[in-house]
């Protein structure tokens, strides 16, 4: 699946988008896999209360299943307007 990062999440991880092969069942499991990679991911995902996730461009919860999902995006709370 494609994993996208925005705002300071993108800056901490150092890239806007990557292709991830995963067997993670939920968003939370995917985060665990990413955090285990290296410090940049650990820093980006250190405080989940400061993060939001979208699955196929719809806001979702961290315990949401990834079955059939093609695009996951992580970003801070939105500041439009």
């Amino acid at each position: 699946m494609d994993v996208l990062y925005f705002a300071w999440v993108r800056e901490r991880i150092g890239l806007p988008k990557e292709r991830v092969e995963t067997t993670a069942v939920t968003v939370a499991e995917l985060i665990e896999e990413l955090v285990a990679r290296d410090d940049r991911y650990a820093a980006a995902f250190a405080d989940l209360s400061a993060l939001r996730v979208a699955l196929d461009q719809e806001l979702a919860e961290f315990d949401a299943p990834l079955l059939g999902v093609r695009e996951v995006a992580f970003f801070p709370p939105m500041t439009g307007g």
């Binding site: 925005f6 705002a7 979208a54 806001l59 995006a73 970003f75 801070p76 709370p77 939105m78 500041t79 439009g80 307007g81």
Partner: peptide, 14 residues
Amino acid sequence: LMDYLKSRAPFWKK
């Protein structure tokens, strides 16, 4: 529209 746009539309300001 304004209330939802501020917190539910994916924009980030720097």
